[in-house]
Design a protein around this nucleic acid. Structure first.
Lengths: 218, 218
DNA sequence: CGCCTTAGTGGCACGTTTTGCCATTTCGAC
DNA sequence: GTCGAAATGGCAAAACGTGCCACTAAGGCG
C-alpha cells in the first residue's frame, strides 16, 4: 500500500494477508504521527485515513475508533514477548521464563521492536493529556494479560490453580506496564542504563518474586 | 433532583454539592438500568438523560461519554476502601492494612456498598459483550491505582522507593479487580462463602505477600 | 483463456455522539 | 431582597461510527 518493500517470497501467510497487515501498520503510523503533532482530539479520523491513503470507510474496517488506530504500535512489544514465552520450554522456573522472554524481546536491536518502543514512548506522553488515548493503553494491557493467561497456564502445568495463574498474568503484565510508563517519563535510550529491559526485570522480580505459583516452580 | 431524602443537616459539604452528587448518582443508576435492559449500544445518551430527569446537555456536563455514566457505581467500592486505608494508623504492616481495609469496606451490610456491588456484577457481565463498557472498568481501576499510590506511600513511610510503592498499588488494585471479576461470574451473595471479601483476601495475600516493601513492614 | 466466487475497498446516507455558545434559572453570600 | 457565580437547558454544528451497495482485484475452475 505504501511501504514498497521488495516482494519477498519467504514465509508469511498470503499476499493479501501481508497487504492487510501493511495497511494496518500504515494507518497506525499515520495516527501516531498526527497524534504526536496535534494531539488526538485535534486529529480527525478523516485526516488519519487520508495520510494513510485509504478511505474513511476503510479506516473503520480496520479500527473501531480513532484512538484504537495506534493499538498495534502499543501491543507489538507485548506480542513479541508472549510469542517468545510460548516457545520457551519448561526448563527453568516460571519467573525465569517470564524474565528471559522479556529481556530477549527488549534487548534485541531489532528495527521493528525499536520503532515500536519509540512510538510507545511518544504515545504514552500524549496519553498523559488525553483520556481516550490512555484508554487504548489500558485496553492493550488488559488484552495482553488475557492472552498471557493460557501461556502462563501451560508453563505452570495442568494442575495449577486457575486463579493463581490469572494473578501471575496480571502481575507480570503490570510489571511490564509500570516499567514502560516509568521509562516513558525519561529520555533514556531503548538500550542504555534506564532501558525498558532493566526496568522490566526489576519490576518483574519485585512483583512476581513472591508468588506461590512462581516460587514452587513447576 | 429525584431522591427526596430528607434534608439532613448532618455533615456533607454544601447543599449544592450534595445535589450535584445526587444528580450524578441518578444518572449513573439510570444508565446502569438501561445498560442492563437493552445493552449499552442499544441505549442512547438521550434515553439515559431522560430517565435521570436532566437534559442531554447536562448529561454531558457530568460525564464525558455515554459509558462513563456508570463510572461512579463501579468506583464507589474502591473509594470506600481507599478512605478506610487513609484513616488507618501505621499500627500493623502494610499487607495487614490493605487487607483490613478491604474486609472492612466489603463486609459491612451497608446499603450503599451493597448496591454498588450488585450494580458492579451486572455491569461486569454486560461488559463481557461490550468493549466500551470494559474500557470504563479499566479506567476506573487505573484511576483507583493512581489514587492509591499516595495512600500506600504514607503507610510505607517517607523513605520508601517510589517505584516499589507504585508496584504495591498496582498489585493491590489488581487483586481487587481480579477478585471482583471472578465473583461477577458466579451467583454468590455479597456476603456468603464466595463473597467478594473472601476472594479479595485470597488475591491480596497471593499478590502482595511476597513484595519486599510489604514484608519489611515499616 | 474467460468465468465465477470471494474478499477488500470506496462512496454515500444516516443516526448518534459530543461540544460550543448563549439564554435562563437557581444557589449562596451579603 | 439583591447580586454574582454556578448549574441547567436548548440549539446548532462538527465529528464519530455504521449499514448499504456498487466496484475492483485475486484466486480457483472448466
Amino acid at each position: 500500500m505504501s511501504q514498497p518493500s521488495g516482494p519477498r517470497p519467504t514465509a508469511s501467510p498470503s499476499l493479501t494477508e501481508r497487504r492487510k497487515a501493511a495497511t494496518q501498520l500504515d494507518i497506525a503510523r499515520a495516527a501516531a504521527e498526527l497524534f504526536a503533532e496535534k494531539g488526538p482530539d485535534d486529529t480527525t479520523a478523516e485526516e488519519i485515513a487520508g495520510r494513510a491513503g485509504v478511505a474513511l470507510r476503510t479506516f473503520y474496517r480496520y479500527f473501531r475508533s480513532k484512538q484504537d488506530a495506534v493499538g498495534p504500535l502499543l501491543s507489538s512489544g507485548g506480542d513479541r514477548w508472549r510469542a517468545l514465552l510460548a516457545e520457551a520450554g519448561p526448563g527453568a522456573g516460571l519467573a525465569q521464563a517470564l524474565e528471559s522472554a522479556a529481556v530477549a524481546s527488549l534487548s534485541t536491536p531489532d528495527d521493528v521492536a525499536n520503532e515500536g518502543m519509540r512510538w510507545t514512548r511518544g504515545l504514552l506522553r500524549a496519553a498523559r493529556h488525553d483520556p481516550a488515548l490512555r484508554a487504548v493503553w489500558y485496553r492493550v494491557n488488559q488484552e495482553s494479560e488475557e492472552k498471557l493467561q493460557p501461556v502462563v497456564a501451560r508453563l505452570a502445568g495442568p494442575d495449577a490453580d486457575p486463579l493463581e495463574v490469572r494473578l501471575v498474568a496480571a502481575a507480570a503484565t503490570d510489571a511490564i506496564r509500570v516499567a514502560f510508563e516509568t521509562w516513558a517519563t525519561t529520555d533514556a535510550e531503548t538500550l542504555g542504563e534506564d532501558s525498558p529491559a532493566r526496568l522490566v526485570v526489576r519490576c518483574l522480580r519485585e512483583l512476581t518474586g513472591g508468588l506461590r505459583l512462581v516460587r514452587n516452580g513447576r
